[in-house]
Design a protein around this nucleic acid. Structure first.
Lengths: 341, 341
DNA sequence: CGAAATTTTTAAACAGTTTAAAATACTTTT
DNA sequence: AAAAGTATTTTAAACTGTTTAAAAATTTCG
């Protein structure tokens, strides 16, 4: 490259001070219209590129927002990310993305990088077991933090997520209303608030309907298609074989349906399956998946807005929990129970 | 937050100059061992955070690497991204990610942001129709660029991608060897090099086997499950109904298989289907998908390494094309043709 | 002409890194 | 034991590009 064009390069070329150039390029009313025009034209023509690091050294605003999730390849987070992206684009912020894969150290490294870069704020779905000190350090360095999808115990932060126990209740009651009495719950673990909430929601719905629940009916596990697929064996071998399965999420449900089909049964007819999240994929699965919409676009949009408000000092750092209300979307993976009761 | 800890804060507390502190924290041999220890301990204890923007202003190295792809929610890119992430983590670089959704303006905005932030380099799968000037501007600003998955006509840049026409040939010949004579090609468009290469590869394989190809057998379209699903109607209504379909990628293939199943036919038995990429998902689809492994981890790893080499000045900016050799993975979605010929 | 308003410039941050030079310590040599 | 020479440690000043408050210069207007 040729030599770098900076404010002073332009200033010298035009015989004005760098301050004037800086002001002009940012459209300050302090500079005469004619001067502005001349400066802007010259800057464009010389191929000037604004140096954000120099500016942010002075202003301590970097325009960078960090986003940390478990895994961007998980479409649930992908859909949230998409709405965050839309919202941040609008306000000309750039986002730095990282997966933590539920590794607290990796997450801490990334938070550290954000602080070093002088990020303006963080949106995160915290790794399982995130110590409160890690978050406190970030807050003490002046970065507002908002959480999505998961809460951190004892932390007083804004959280945006779906109402899990209500949502899983919708799915469970739907199966009950179709006459199912033996319903399993596949996937998820108890080490996140979401995990506990969903299991509780399922238990509550079963109890309300006065249905017995066997502990073996819960097959915990990761939240992936692979895991759902692999759980099939255990599920089909269950004593008092359940006629339906409430799955942790759509991925697990789709994996389970694939497994069921592979075993020669027909998912949706022989065994009813519900998902959770309502990913775009749910509608085109075979059979189309009955699932609970978990408000991904809402979560992303509102979390981004909340963070921007906090960055602008419009709002404070208090710990509000905003639960998005899930909706049941009934499709073909659930049907009335087959067996003669 | 309390007041910011900077090098001079530490220096004052210990009665040494900031230069010494800077040197000590970077483990320079110019500082006595004992002094180093004392300084490091103090820095840790005071909660010092390295200010990368201040440093990079002087050193013009930011540690940021930009990555631009079509859509991170597409698992094909997701898998590449994962291996890029692994490779960059190793060298303590942070990556800034962006989707361009094949929108040249959005891509240009992002490249502009990267230059403003003083990024060290860019890995990109360029948007369709990327003008060469957009890339030249980046190069002139001193950022090395390497491409993945797609080439840019006339640009002399390093490119890492699979050998498309060879790969699609593997799939097509496999179907031919199973006795299929009427083979359709679903998905993809002619506006990318990949699109053209794959279609050509299919045509070449058919021609070599002396099989006729009807132009209607090609159903172009987006590269998503949704698109594959929606193409089913047109595919099943084709004159001289093909007995097999070579799909643009796994997503299209899975969508098509879902569509076929929805229409009451059995994919893999009634109609053979091949995918492309060999996503993790391909193995657990129903039926398990015969597909062409496209070397995602290799592409990501080598692109990242090449970029880092260029950043370090080890290697130059010349335009090498590195084709990763695809492999055919045979599973249950393909079987011998059913009809009596 | 002088006051007020408008426009431009100056100079000091911002928080680090770099490097030549100064200061100090340690060996040798006589 | 002092002087000279060498090696180690530390310092001071320059440098990165932009912003901004305050000062200075210029123009406008009554």
């Amino acid at each position: 490259m040729a030599q770098k064009i900076k404010l002073s390069t332009i200033g010298e070329a035009l015989g004005v001070s760098t301050a004037t150039v800086s002001l002009a390029l940012r459209d300050s009313p302090l500079v005469a219209e004619a001067t502005k025009e001349k400066i802007k034209a010259h800057a464009r023509q010389m191929g000037y590129i604004y140096n954000r690091r120099a500016a942010s050294l002075r202003t301590s605003k970097s325009g960078i927002i960090g986003v940390v999730v478990h895994d961007i390849m998980n479409p649930f987070y992908g859909e949230i990310l998409k709405s965050i992206e839309t919202e941040l684009d609008r306000s000309r912020h750039t986002f730095l993305l990282s997966n933590h894969y539920d590794n607290v150290d990796k997450q801490r490294d990334f938070l550290d990088t954000l602080m070093q870069l002088g990020a303006d704020g963080v949106i995160m779905s915290p790794a399982i077991g995130t110590p409160i000190e890690d978050i406190d350090l970030v807050l003490r360095n002046g970065l507002p933090v908002v959480l999505i999808a998961r809460s951190i115990p004892k932390a007083s932060l804004p959280v945006f997520r779906g109402d899990d126990s209500f949502g899983i209740g919708l799915a469970t009651r739907h199966l009950i209303s179709l006459g199912h009495k033996r319903i399993a719950m596949i996937g998820g673990t108890d080490d996140t608030s979401t995990g506990r909430d969903r299991y509780q929601g399922y238990l509550t719905a079963m109890k309300k309907a006065e249905l017995a629940v066997k502990p073996e009916w819960r097959i915990p596990g990761p939240r992936t298609k692979q895991a759902g697929f692999e759980a099939t064996g255990e599920f089909l071998a269950l004593p008092d074989k359940p006629t339906a399965a409430v799955c942790w999420n759509d991925l697990v449900a789709i994996g389970l349906m694939n497994g069921i089909a592979r075993a020669g049964l027909t998912p949706g007819t022989d065994i009813s399956v519900t998902g959770y999240d309502d990913l775009e994929e749910a509608a085109i699965a075979t059979p189309a998946l009955t699932t609970v919409w978990n408000g991904q676009p809402e979560v992303g949009r509102r979390a981004a807005r909340a963070l921007l408000d906090r960055i602008d000092g419009v709002s404070d750092q208090s710990g509000t929990l905003e639960l998005i209300r899930p909706e049941l979307h009934i499709r073909q993976s659930t049907s009335p129970v087959k067996e003669r009761a």
